[in-house]
Write a protein that binds this DNA or RNA. Structure first.
Lengths: 336, 336
DNA sequence: GTGCACTATGTGAGCGCTAACACTACCCGA
DNA sequence: TCGGGTAGTGTTAGCGCTCACATAGTGCAC
């Protein structure tokens, strides 16, 4: 099938040069006469020549592909990150190959990475938001450029992450500033670093104001679990402010409060995290924390490219992206 | 950098056979003695040998990679589709390379496809929900396996699509069955086939009941546009039933209705489309239409693999996946 | 002019693999 | 007994490209 397109030698013949000169033009080498360069380009255009990435990958040992390992690319955060990563990579001339995994356990991660290595990817980005992923990463070959996103801050692996702690602190402080005596927290799954960071920031903000944190409510990112937690919180008259670990949890909480007749923000204020596009259209519009996924993508790709170019695998760089608070209508002072 | 791993010859040497025998074992060829096969496998395991995909792609002219072209992989539909596609492809031993594009115009699509072709992908899946994408596809080389998802039903290109018409008809009929005199529709962007199909289904259901369709409200998939349309609909006392082209539009509509004091479903019933995970936690829980993304992914991959194996590029197959209605609390009979 | 740096281009090898074919046993029926 | 299949394996030739090196041409100091 597939009539093989023209190869470099065909271009060379048409342009009246050697294949090597064509290669030089393609790779932007100096020491090619302007006139020759033009002739080669013309031949490329005329033949519709397209360089064969596989051949290049074979000889250089690296393809212009970046492998991404992620778990649930349907969630808003991972999906945004993936899209941003792809966009940024494309600008740098890299393609992105996705290897999604069902679980972020040792075996799954290793298998996904192996698959990427078989294709000789130039580097790998692992979106590894849970504890179990960390172990796998340390056992990986050290000679392949690797960056983790939202991974374990404790591990000696290059890491780019949203500053969960700062974001959560800002959210909590925002509620305290509005006059609330304390802030309740509906968290994400306990094994996610994102959750842990948000819990930590929430706790820190309260402690900094001399407030003893109230009991933590555990959710799992889903609106369903937010709803369940919301049903409990709605029945507690002393609750006036809730910070949820993401917007979907907030949605569930909002509905539970609505059902119990607790008005937001008149009776209870709510702050979310993520700023999903719909957050502005919740009832009421949700005040939330917006992580900058583009910045995360740019930073991780930059880190990866540095490794690729310098030929280093696995330094221990670290970069943190500060999120910003987006104030909407779901926060108001408490009524006494 | 990257210490090159062992090659096939290394395995061959260790196993005491020729590299060709190793190749045969790897590719599951017959005519290899069981004992030899075992010896080779042992050598592979001992060396941690991993076949070089680039070399294979070079010689066969096709890599074990499927390219996907999509626009906005942050939207729930495309994201789900992409994830499902990746999952299914992995099961078949294929990797998925994403090439997202900003616009679905001729040039962008072609460029993305070109990028995939440069990597000699085995096949391409284009998620091409708008008119302008169609043109680009017809001009593509005919010798590369290609499947479009949610594309133009009119074009002679293999296509897998959700049955938008049937879904919309079911949604509309569901509202009529509840006793509503007519159903208003907030549509998606007019250049999307998904929109067109949903409009068609809505119209067909009304006409089948002898109802003259009311004016169409144009949205753009976003909650923001749903909100704007909702503000108009909320002020029209005769409106008792609304079908929105997706759940996010419904969310915007719900908020607008809420602000105007129109209760859902007591005063107005609403039905969405997509069944995003949060739909069950809208206020009230949203009745909606659920497309089966997994089925779409499976069907398109199957179609692609058939082409790849048979060496045919571009037949004109067509497959339609029926969506299902998910009834929740946002629909009730009208009050007289 | 000779030597030498420097630019512009060509030549040859080989990356790791598969496809085509060659070769060696061995078994079988005539 | 011998021709001819067939299972199991080896040999060779590239796929299209980059890298290292070889070669020609140019400018310039001595």
């Amino acid at each position: 099938m597939a009539v093989h397109g023209p190869a470099m030698t065909d271009v060379a013949r048409l342009a009246g040069v050697s294949h090597q000169t064509v290669s030089r033009v393609l790779n932007g080498h100096p020491n090619v006469r302007e006139q020759t360069r033009l002739r080669v380009r013309a031949a490329i255009a005329e033949l519709g020549y397209r360089p064969n990435g596989a051949a290049r990958a074979l000889v250089t040992g690296r393809s212009q592909v970046i492998g991404v390992v992620a778990q649930n690319t349907t969630l808003y955060g991972p999906a945004s990150l993936l899209a941003a990563l792809e966009q940024t990579a494309a600008e740098e001339g890299f393609a992105v190959s996705v290897g999604s995994v069902r679980n972020l356990d040792h075996r799954s991660i290793s298998a996904a990475v192996e698959r990427h290595l078989a294709h000789r990817v130039a580097g790998i980005v692992v979106i590894a938001p849970v504890e179990s992923a960390g172990e796998a990463l340390e056992l990986l070959p050290k000679d392949v450029p690797l960056v983790t996103v939202d991974g374990d801050p404790q591990r000696p692996v290059p890491l780019v992450t949203v500053d969960q702690v700062a974001g959560a602190r800002a959210a909590t402080q925002h509620l305290l500033d509005a006059g609330h005596r304390t802030v309740w927290h509906v968290s994400g799954p306990s094994d996610w670093f994102d959750s842990a960071g948000r819990i930590e920031g929430w706790r820190a903000a309260l402690l900094a104001s001399g407030i003893d944190p109230p009991p933590l409510m555990h959710g799992d990112w889903s609106a369903a679990s937010g709803y369940r937690c919301g049903q409990m919180l709605a029945r507690m008259p002393e609750v006036t402010a809730i910070f949820t670990a993401n917007d979907h949890l907030a949605l569930g909480v909002l509905r539970a409060l609505h059902e119990f007749g607790r008005r937001v923000p008149a009776d209870i204020s709510v702050v979310g995290f993520d700023d999903v596009p719909e957050a502005a259209y919740f009832i009421p519009p949700l005040t939330t924390v917006r992580p900058d996924f583009d910045a995360v993508a740019r930073a991780s790709l930059q880190m990866l490219l540095t490794q690729i170019e310098s030929g280093i695998g696995g330094g221990a760089l670290r970069q943190t992206i500060a999120p910003s608070l987006v104030a909407r209508d779901s926060v108001a002072p408490p009524r006494h």
